[in-house]
């Protein structure tokens, strides 16, 4: 396994607030890694640190094995597409693409033109005059057509409608399959990208709380529903992420059940169901203490 990004004991403080709090992880080569978490959890700060746009308070970052700060050798291999990117005054879409073609050594001009057509982006208008969705689409075009060895998308879809987002995921996946590269995608539209991810990082209040293969997280939590007393009896002493009840009926989300425990719940007459990655992340980052079934 080659690590494209290596982060060790990384902390970034703004005054008393630790935006990133002692995080350690690696981003594997040629994988699509999801960086998930709530707004303000520290995702953007983390990506800015990785790409040398912020100074760490403490800890180590290696990008392609090197320190990223003002290091053109590694930053030229990296494409960082962020939400609400600002551009110089008077810049039009065509200027953005022109600059991108100079900056990124693997830039594919033909692909860029195809994507511009598909996303219906006007290139002859000033970036400041574009709608949010149109400006986001330009970012997405650059992110895909740059074919950078490391491409980081920080919630790149502001203002993109569902059709355009699906086109983005499909185009990214197809081009990634043909030209494998390392992709980090920060998003809170988790359900939309869950099946694209190979690895998942979840950050909550600056701390890395999940670092696992996506496949491992699938099925790592279970919903158990049924009669209140039965559900309560089953979930007692277990890792309950969420609980809800309606009259005599109750439902809980439980982490870490073995197949045998699931079978036992089903045999006891309880409904056993899957939990999506999005539900799992919500359960893990809700911020409230683990709940008991209300009795």
């Amino acid at each position: 396994m080659t690590a494209i990004v290596e982060v060790t004991d990384l902390t970034k403080r703004y005054g008393s607030l630790a935006a990133v709090d002692d995080a350690s992880f690696v981003v594997r080569e040629h994988a699509i890694t999801g960086l998930l978490g709530r707004n303000g959890a520290g995702k953007t700060t983390l990506m800015q640190l990785i790409t040398g746009q912020e100074l760490a308070t403490s800890g180590e970052i290696r990008l392609f094995g090197q320190h990223p700060l003002e290091n053109a050798a590694v930053l030229s291999r990296t494409c960082f597409i962020k939400e609400s990117q600002t551009y110089p005054d008077g810049f039009k879409g065509e200027h953005v693409l022109k600059v991108a073609s100079w900056v990124f050594p693997h830039w594919d001009e033909q692909l860029a033109r195809e994507l511009v057509d598909e996303f219906r982006v006007p290139l002859d208008r000033r970036m400041k005059k574009l709608s949010r969705g149109q400006a986001s689409a330009i970012g997405v075009v650059v992110g895909i057509a740059s074919r950078a060895e490391l491409t980081i998308f920080d919630e790149p879809y502001a203002g993109l409608d569902a059709v355009a987002r699906q086109a983005f995921y499909d185009r990214l996946l197809a081009d990634y399959a043909e030209h494998p590269r390392t992709i980090v995608m920060s998003t809170h539209l988790i359900d939309e990208v869950a099946d694209l991810l190979e690895h998942v990082l979840v950050i909550d209040e600056g701390r890395l709380i999940i670092d696992a293969p996506a496949e491992e997280l699938r099925g790592s939590a279970t919903t158990i529903a049924g009669k209140h007393a039965d559900v309560e009896a089953f979930s007692r002493g277990r890792d309950v992420l969420d609980a809800d009840s309606l009259g005599a009926f109750a439902s809980v989300t439980v982490a870490g059940l073995t197949p045998a425990e699931r079978a036992a719940a089903a045999a006891a007459g309880l409904e056993v169901g899957p939990v999506s990655l999005q539900q799992l992340v919500i359960g893990r980052t809700r911020g409230t203490a683990r709940q008991e079934v209300a009795s």
Partner: peptide, 15 residues
């Protein structure tokens, strides 16, 4: 092919 399957099912090619 792997890439066709990935595109059709909208899943990671590694999967």
């Amino acid at each position: 092919s792997i890439n066709e399957l990935a595109a059709f099912h909208r899943i990671n090619p590694a999967t």
